[in-house]
């Protein structure tokens, strides 16, 4: 339905978006995941028409909407700070979009009622915006965006300002509402838990480019680059130096490479070793290190070695002890 082709955008001479392309289908939820400053909010503003791209085009069902002003696009946008109108009460806020569509009065009342029911805020109609809690404001913002039945819903870090508990609660509510509405959704966040919980597809944004895209489980399972692995916190990312015979050398020792390396000898590659693929070994193990710190974590111990390498073990080890570890799996990443 929505297609982005090669979007470029710079701010004050600095490139912010460098060739973004993707499309989104009916009922699909896409999460744009990236650290702050990665340009994800700007991309959302370009889609909504609040800002223009330097290059590239935005299409809706094949038609370019490049020159269409935001108020004709019928996209819903949920702002990070909600941007509820301070001079209107809850009802008037939610009714705003329907009013713009010149809906009849009784239908406006019905639409508002339906939207408030969806976000579980019936009875709040006459409340002033100033008297709402953060979570309530968030839900009013959602109802306001849903009421005019937008063709596309855009979320700009909508849960960012809320505390953790409330965030988790609203996240599950949001999932249910989005599934019910069948509207395509683009959801921008820096929080991977949020992204993985909501997304049909995740796109990772780094330095203005989509560095990886796919289903949440795929992305988590196969991070393509060192940056993605680090950003997702997938495990130990270390540098390896390729030796002869399919061996790779790390500061902790030499390891067998997982596949026939195309890389030439003496090239340096980033490796991902997930803690769940690591177990305690002995002096014959391929990797060795000295225990730096032991921390009890959930039902086991988090063991970290001097140099930062970590894994989990059922029993506590002694700090300072020299140990060997066995590695079940290594993933080779791109630089």
């Amino acid at each position: 339905m929505l297609t982005l082709k090669n979007i470029y955008k710079s701010y004050e001479g600095k490139p912010l978006l460098r060739g973004i392309s993707f499309d989104i289908d009916q009922g699909e939820t896409i999460c744009l995941l990236g650290p702050s400053g990665s340009g994800k909010s700007t991309l959302l503003r370009i889609i909504s028409g609040l800002e223009a791209a330097d290059e590239g085009e935005v299409f809706w069902e094949g038609q370019s909407i490049q020159s269409m002003p935001p108020h004709l696009r019928n996209f819903g946008l949920i702002f990070q700070d909600y941007a509820l109108f301070p001079h209107l009460n809850v009802f008037e806020n939610v009714a705003f979009g329907l009013k713009m569509q010149k809906t009849r009065k009784d239908e406006i009342a019905l639409g508002v009622n339906k939207a408030l029911k969806q976000v579980d805020l019936l009875g709040f109609e006459m409340r002033s915006i100033a008297n709402l809690s953060g979570g309530e404001q968030q839900r009013v913002a959602l109802a306001r965006a849903l009421a005019p039945r937008p063709r596309l819903l855009l979320f700009d870090e909508p849960l960012g300002a809320l505390d953790r508990k409330l965030r988790e609660y609203l996240l599950s509510e949001l999932r249910a509402i989005l599934q019910e509405s069948q509207v395509p959704v683009i959801y921008v966040t820096h929080d991977q838990e949020e992204a993985f919980a909501l997304a049909d597809r995740v796109m990772l944004l780094h330095e203005g480019k989509i560095v990886q895209r796919g289903k949440p489980a795929e992305v988590y399972e196969n991070p393509v680059s060192e940056w993605v692995a680090e950003f997702l916190g997938a495990g130990n990312v270390l540098e390896g130096n390729i030796l002869k015979n399919g061996l790779v050398e790390t500061v902790f020792g030499s390891l067998k490479m997982p596949f026939e390396g195309k890389q030439a000898e003496n090239t340096r590659v980033p490796l991902l070793i997930r803690p769940e693929d690591v177990s305690l070994g002995d002096e014959n193990s391929s990797l060795h290190g000295r225990v730096d710190d032991i921390r009890f974590y959930q039902n086991k111990y988090r063991v970290s070695l001097v140099g930062g390498f970590y894994f989990y073990h059922a029993n506590p080890l002694k700090v300072g002890e020299e140990i060997g570890v066995d590695i079940a799996r290594i993933q080779v990443l791109e630089k």
Binding site: L50, H71, A83, F85
Partner: peptide
């Protein structure tokens, strides 16, 4: 943001 929110809700 108020003006942007209003535009997104369909107000010229």
């Amino acid at each position: 943001r108020y003006r942007e929110a209003s535009a997104m809700l369909g107000a010229s």
